[in-house]
């Protein structure tokens, strides 16, 4: 069990923070953006300078599940390119947290170029009847509208996970379409395998969702991750 899971359980939290979730997945070999959790606006700027612009600045708190809807929309700030923008975003987050009376830190992260890849959702849930299960689908609104997903009972092999991606109606998009580059199907498969293994190995995890996982030509990066724990 990782430290983050242990800490979350001790504090009786229902989920890991995004940074903790990404750390857990990264420790199992998944690619995540370069990022840092900080507790002041100056530290946020320092982190951004180290990471390199553009960056994303997000609220980091166990009390906040839906970051983009939190604090009148100050919870997620994308594509920041200057120290001033980073400082302002961080200050807004700390002020909103004070207003709401919650403990919050700020998560500064390397910005991703969504154009450089295909947005995929990879998830897994502990079903009461089947135990650990995994799914893959195309990310964004497509998954809601078309429900183009593939499922398996976990844990599974990489070959089985590749087969899942091939079952999707959207599978040809992985191979490149109208000039867009082919993406790393194997890396998506590895992410599915990892989600299944983490669920299988940690009874206290109820659900994992990586949405989006950005599939690029030579890797797949978890841009957002949610790890929910048993209540």
């Amino acid at each position: 069990m990782t430290d983050a899971l242990e800490a979350a359980r001790d504090e009786q939290r229902s989920a890991l923070t995004e940074a903790e979730a990404k750390e857990l997945l990264a420790s199992r070999g998944l690619s995540v953006p370069d990022g840092e959790t900080v507790t002041s606006s100056e530290e946020a700027v320092e982190a951004a300078e180290r990471i390199g612009y553009p960056v994303v600045v997000k609220v980091a708190s166990p009390a906040v599940q839906h970051k983009s809807e939190w604090g009148s929309g100050v919870g997620v700030n994308v594509n920041l390119t200057t120290p001033d923008e980073v400082r302002t975003a961080a200050v807004d987050i700390f002020e909103a947290a004070d207003r709401e009376g919650i403990d919050a830190a700020v998560f500064v992260e390397e910005a991703a170029d969504l154009e450089a890849g295909l947005e995929v959702i990879v998830g897994g849930t502990r079903d009461p009847s089947f135990g650990p299960t995994v799914l893959v689908g195309l990310g964004g609104i497509t998954v809601e509208v078309l429900q183009d997903t593939s499922h398996r009972i976990a844990p599974i092999s990489t070959a089985e996970a590749v087969a899942m991606t091939r079952e999707l109606e959207a599978s040809p998009l992985f191979d490149g379409y109208r000039g867009s580059p082919a993406v790393d199907r194997e890396a998506v498969a590895e992410a599915i395998v990892t989600v299944g293994e983490v669920l299988d190995a940690n009874e206290e995890i109820r659900e994992i969702e990586i949405n989006p996982l950005l599939a690029e030509s030579d890797r797949a990066v978890a841009l957002d991750a949610l790890v929910s724990l048993d209540d």
């Binding site: 849930t125 079903d127 089947f130 499922h151 659900e207």
Partner: peptide, 21 residues
């Protein structure tokens, strides 16, 4: 709540599971 929860219905798991097994 989440896409993963909403999309993982018992029907889908049976269909996928029978294929797997």
């Amino acid at each position: 709540e989440s896409h993963t929860g909403a999309l993982t219905g018992e029907y889908e798991l049976y269909e996928a599971g029978f294929a797997q097994y």
